[in-house]
Every structure is written in C-alpha cells, then in structure tokens.
Amino acid sequence: MEFHGPSTVDEAVSLLAADEDARCLAGGATLVAMMNADLVMPSALVSLRHIAALGGIAADAGGGLRIGAMTTHREVADAAGLDGAHALISETARAIGHPAIRNMGTIGGSIGHGDPQADYPAALVALDASVELRGPDGARAVPAQDFFVDYLETALQPGELITAVTLPPSPAGGFGAYEKFARVEGDYATVSVAAAVAMEAGRCRYVRVALGSCGPIPVRAEDAEARLAGTALADEDVAAAAAVLRDACDPVDDVRGSGEYRMMLVEPLLGRALRAAAAKGGAR
C-alpha cells in the first residue's frame, strides 16, 4: 500500500487517475473503520489533508454557499450567520455522531461514501445542492439529487474527487429543519427528514423535502412537495404528502428497524420537520 499526501488538487487527481484502486483519505472516519474491519484494503491512499484549496466555507456574491470538501462536520456545525435555509446544513452536521466524529469527518468524505443512512445526503437534496468534482477531464458539478446513484454508489468516476458542495441562494423567507430519528443518540438515522420551507401569510410558498434511510438514495417526491405547496401544513396535508413520499421509498429491514417501521415514521417525522422549519420563519 502506498501513502500519498499531495498538496494540490491536480496532484491528487493524477495520483487517483494513475491507480484505479487508490482511495481518497479525507477524515478517515469511515474509510479507516472499514480498513480496520478488513472490508477494504486500497492499493494506495491519497490523503487530502494538505490540500488547502479543499477547505473553508464561503458565501458567494449571489447568496450561494460553497463548502470545501475537507470541511469538517464541526466546522459546518459551528458555521455562524448562515442565510435562511442554509442553516439546515449546520443543523444536520450537529446531528452527526458525536464530537470526535464531527472533528474528524468531512462533508466530502461523508457524501463520497454514498451511504443513504448518513445525514448529509438528505439535507443536500433538500437544499438543492450541487457537488463539485474534479477529475482528469476537468471540473464538473452534479446536482446532489443525481450525485447519489445507488446504495454506496455515487456519480464519482475513476480518478475524480469531490472538491466542494455548493448551495444555491436560500429561497426567500426560507428556513430548514433536520428531523432525525435514531435508536440512540449518535447512531445512524432509522429515518431522517430534511425540509426547506418558506411560509407566507401562513401558507407554504416553497417546500423541498428529502428523506434519509428510506431507500438506496435520499428520497424526494416532487408530487409530495406540490401537495404541500400553498397549504398551511395541516395534518391532512402532511398525511397526504407523506403518502406520496412513502410510495417513493424503498427501505430495507435491518437492525435499526424494519422497512415497515421506517414507513410508519415518515409521516410524523415529516410533520415535525416541516413545522420546525416553518416555525423558524414565524419566530422572525
């Protein structure tokens, strides 16, 4: 096994391109755990720690937000002054694991693993985020919704690495909420709901919702959002939207809960996420 510590993205890309079995080492929280369990043994590790360009959170002039791939969960959790719905990403980061994992884990490392039980994927889909990639053929951006392809499978191509996650400007008057239900604190979600909502005069003017741990990738249903738009998010609206979302779910049975139970959680958690997001607007 080789170990590399490049200082530029280009160097990292050429190392990855040269060896199909090489893996990026970001925070290590997932990859090293898998190596310890003998589940993976890459031929080379490309540590991204020394690439300064992969760090940092920055707002752009248009109101968007760019989060470097090596930004830790803690940095995202502690990011202050995020605009409107963007605060959802901080709330989500705070829900990940516990302090040591938040100090180690990075947003790029987390989403690059493509685990639908992780916290970021649903939040990024709800925020309509894009994932910036760099490979031998240059840079490209993939909408979060398309980045997650299947269970533990992403749009990353051989030789590519994640350089950043970008969020479009927060919808006007929009706020977000992340509702996570887990067996114990710090566990992977049994079901999670990320919601971005803008209310106007008691009615839902904008809504975008994604579910975690309910299928091989984050679950989103535009019909469900359409059902909620214009409503006051009353119980029957939530119930109707949840029914649509459930049709899009394909949850597994595992030690965190049966697929059937996950389906039972969709409606109450959806309601809580939507109302928590809406309430943040109300509090202003």
């Binding site: 516990h98 067996r183 114990v184 604190e185 710090g186 566990d187 030690v255």
Partner: peptide
C-alpha cells in the same frame, strides 16, 4: 455500531 448500548445522551 449495530448493537447499541446506552450512551450518556440516552
């Protein structure tokens, strides 16, 4: 990871 004993938050 899969067998959960109570942590301090639980």
């Amino acid at each position: 990871m899969d067998y959960k004993i109570p942590g301090i938050m639980d």
